[in-house]
Design a protein around this nucleic acid. Structure first.
Lengths: 117, 117
DNA sequence: TTTGACGTTGACGTTAAGGTCAAGCTCATA
DNA sequence: TATGAGCTTGACCTTAACGTCAACGTCAAA
């Protein structure tokens, strides 16, 4: 599929898709006319990226995480050395903190809404 | 307490504190020499703000949420009209989506780490 | 063969959340 | 009184994640 198709199917702009490629998050091949050519799975990948971005993670981290979060069937990244494993563990703790904070805030907003209704 | 004290106790810079005030998230009073004067609770408030910012919420939303998430003892915002309640409900759904996405990503990173170790 | 939709790169603009620096108060202390 | 630490505002700078626009290539359909 071409960039316009992927944009429609995944609900982002073509500009975003080019930006994600620039950030090394997507790697379409080029057809003979130099158009980007995406695989079907790209739709899922883009949604994965969007989710992580919406969750507040920078592309720098998403680049690290993508090979890991593409499901248990995904290939392992080339060299999961201890440096990268450390980074991931740190990021895991941050994720946990974010999750707890968001849950807490959500609870309080819910309480508030119950009070004012 | 003054701005430097609050910065130290809450772990942010004075620039951030001034920025949060500019964004209408903090409202210190001024002492006779025009210095900002903060209450003790400001420490908690700043940490609340940091948590929400780290979670990816913009100050625009935090401004809305702050009166709600300051705990059940907090005063109700002036006019919790239906427009604002609607905004909050929408934001609640977004929060839930973020939480689920983060949890999902976290699980996958954990799976990954178990595989490579 | 020309039009129109779609693609390409490149460059500049924008917004949020601050960093940084300057020039000038305030105030306790040497 | 002067010195230094901390405070004030104002101004400009920075970064990420795009939006937008220009100028040009590609290709199926009229």
């Amino acid at each position: 599929m071409r960039i316009g198709d992927l944009a429609r199917e995944s609900g982002v702009t073509t500009r975003q898709l080019r930006y994600y490629e620039e950030q090394d998050l997507l790697h379409p091949i080029r057809s003979s006319n130099n158009y980007r050519e995406y695989a079907e799975e790209s739709v899922q990948q883009v949604q994965q990226i969007r989710g992580l971005l919406d969750a507040g993670l920078p592309t720098r981290l998403i680049r690290l995480l993508l090979p890991c979060v593409q499901g248990p069937a995904a290939e392992l990244p080339p060299q999961p050395n201890s440096e990268m494993a450390g980074l991931l563990r740190t990021e895991l703790e941050n994720l946990q903190a974010r999750i707890e904070f968001l849950s807490h805030s959500k609870n309080e907003i819910e309480c508030y809404l119950k009070r004012v209704v």
